[in-house]
Amino acid sequence: MSVSKKIVLLGHFGVGKSSLLRRFVENTFSENYTVTIGVHIMKKEIMAEGNNITLIIWDVEGTDDFTKYRPSYLLGASSFIYVFDASRAVTYSDLKYNLGHLKEKYSNVPVHVIGNKVDLVDQDQLIKDLEQQEIEHSYLSSAKTGENVERLFQNVAAQLLKNA
């Protein structure tokens, strides 16, 4: 069985959404920050739970206000990956509010919360900070080192197949 699923990467600008995508699809990383405007889409076919699945990943331009996302970008998504920058608290300070918006508008789409750039922070301290702010996260990742990137997309795919 081969299926295609649309995944949308969301979050503030500069949190590393494009870097995560490039690390996952092309296994490359660049220290240079290049702004994504509009949407950049890549695909990757992987095996999950013994099945082929084609992930169509939409890397959407970052914003701190999720109400401003164009509905056409989020249309038909099977999963959202909400990325924040673990080294900049401002990128997760409004996480609960944005999650609330997604839940309200796209109640059937699962959201995975990812703290990226963990290579730049003390992970124990970060986990304490997140716990203090009652922020639940699925993974802490680093597009730079590749930490948890493959695992993240594999698990998202596995969950999509389970829900299919």
């Binding site: 405007i37 949407v39 890549m42 695909k43 970008y73």
Partner: peptide, 23 residues
């Protein structure tokens, strides 16, 4: 991969869509 979008359009209620700034 953008054009995978057409696979869902037939099932939609909306007759038309507008996607801005697709790279």
């Amino acid at each position: 991969p953008f054009f995978f979008t057409v696979t869902t359009l037939f099932d939609e209620e909306e007759a038309s869509r507008h996607f801005f700034c697709v790279q």
